[in-house]
Design a protein around this nucleic acid. Sequence first.
DNA 1: CCTGGCACTCACGCCCTTCGACTGCCAATA
DNA 2: TATTGGCAGTCGAAGGGCGTGAGTGCCAGG
Lengths: 348, 348
Amino acid sequence: MSDPLELGSRKVAILRAVVEEFVRTGEPVGSETIVERAGLGVSSATIRNEMAALEELGYLTHPHTSAGRIPTDHAYRRYVDTLPSGRGLRDPQRRAITGFFAETMLDLEEVLKGTTQLLSRLTMYAGLAVPPSFSEETLLRVEVVDMGPAVMVLAVGQHGRVEKAIVDRPKDLDGQAIETLERRVGDEFRGESLAEAQARALKLAGASPQAERELLLVIADTLREMQTGSRNVHVLVGGAANLADEAAHWRRATVQRLFEALEHESEMLRLLRDVSVTPEEVSVTIGAEHPTTEEWEATVVAAPFRSGENPVGTIGVVGPTAMDYVNVVASVRAVARRLSELATELGV
Amino acid sequence: MSDPLELGSRKVAILRAVVEEFVRTGEPVGSETIVERAGLGVSSATIRNEMAALEELGYLTHPHTSAGRIPTDHAYRRYVDTLPSGRGLRDPQRRAITGFFAETMLDLEEVLKGTTQLLSRLTMYAGLAVPPSFSEETLLRVEVVDMGPAVMVLAVGQHGRVEKAIVDRPKDLDGQAIETLERRVGDEFRGESLAEAQARALKLAGASPQAERELLLVIADTLREMQTGSRNVHVLVGGAANLADEAAHWRRATVQRLFEALEHESEMLRLLRDVSVTPEEVSVTIGAEHPTTEEWEATVVAAPFRSGENPVGTIGVVGPTAMDYVNVVASVRAVARRLSELATELGV
DNA sequence: CCTGGCACTCACGCCCTTCGACTGCCAATA
DNA sequence: TATTGGCAGTCGAAGGGCGTGAGTGCCAGG
């Protein structure tokens, strides 16, 4: 593997053909097949030489001597990096996307749930979505609800997200004080960020009578907790069942890892985190490129969605490394665009 | 298959031995194995005769002539129905349960999420939980939040459940009217059920000025919607990844079906629905006993959990029909008991 | 630099055999 | 009548040998 950047244009064509053929059939690809399919005006022997060179360069492998070639992760990488930016959507897919966004939807979280389903139907893999992080939202409301032995603190973000925390009721706090606070607190934090609201609550606590102080401290604490950790960000998954189909192509351990990852939000976040800072519209992370420790043979295709110019969240798809990149990338791109329009419109 | 109720005690012993051995090894069980393991004072020839009879009765099958016997769903059914009610928990399991419930937890929904994880760790299958249905909760609060182009209606149930709906803002409704209503509505519905609150909102609408009427109608509509459909009940799933391990023992279609079912709440509900009306503490639904149309080779072990005497929700486990019933049933029973205590304590 | 040609490799499918884990049945037995 | 040892029979699994064919690598000639 040396100087992977400079490849003759024929090598490039062959590499592309191998990738596409392998993705289509799942079988190792031989030189003869390439001759038939890619129709460069050249014999199979030449292709063989080129393929040997491509193997030397680290783009192809050999399951065994007498078998065809299989693309490596590097091959997919290069393939994806040089994708023609043309149209890759089939008509029914285009219709599905249009249809989905034609419904009027007001709740961003519902929209994103639906989006994961849409993506999974489009690609037949699993769809992902990361909503805007709560800590960047502006608060519309903070509520305190008396639950008897406990107190619920409720925060409503400007995009319709509602987070709740149920905490022990501070002792020395009677229903009367709660009611007073319910009224005082209601609109107090409107238009502030979580961080600002937290600071404000702390300040208010200092200036309040003992009975209310404790509760305000609890509120501040809750707001702080909402800015960090799992409360703040989460990941929606849709269509994971599709991956069960794919399971046959994967090693046991991979399947296990994959489903585990899908269950643990923090893991999925690691996979999607870098996306929103990526300049390109759609990012593709192939196989071992993932910062995951154990074996991982999956690819994540992800794209940020924006409100106006701001990236506010991420959507994506997880599937096998041998996926139809043209179609999946086009699907994710198209959905991200429509979703961005919708998010902008919703004023997210 | 005739007269399945009357089996000689030796047949019963053999059946039990076959089930346990098959669950342990996953291999068809031969007559010789039974002689060694069950140690009835009898030769393998006798066992063979008995096994042939058990096959005749529909309790065992034969993958092929020269193989051992495999239990049918009927065998598991009988096995489960005659389980000794003794202790079936291993010490580490007991500790895990105690440990989990030793934490102070106030939010029932969080508790139930944790419970699904606990169950999946205990059994190595997937854990399920159905929270109390929202329509049976008493309301602590109904809020209206002005979101600009939309309006959010928020309902807080007595167990800390929060449901939201974002709806189009009725035209002719200015911010002023919303604010008025926010105040009026806040405590209006406290202590009522969803149905009562809905009726009340309708009545209020009739007696209100035009500007407020529309919004009250929207509120009524939202409350109605919360009583029905997916908003009302949902199912939590934990540890689905464990089932990926099991996948090897299952037919492709089964795995696919299973993961699909786990994704669709309504499906899981169908599987768990009958449980809470079942008088027994733990209910076991084996393979084809499920009312599902397609092939389904899984078993659901479920139990209601109670607050005081009232069943308020359900927990359970999904796994292969060949599961360690003693252990799984004991796990579900133990967790349901502890959960009932906790729910009672939380005043659910 | 390309090509046709050729020797070589090796998985796969096929057939055959052996092995052994079972069963089913029967005649002998308690 | 229930049980038993014994024995023949069945059939999958595992293994060996073989032919086939897809595919490679390499080379000598254009």
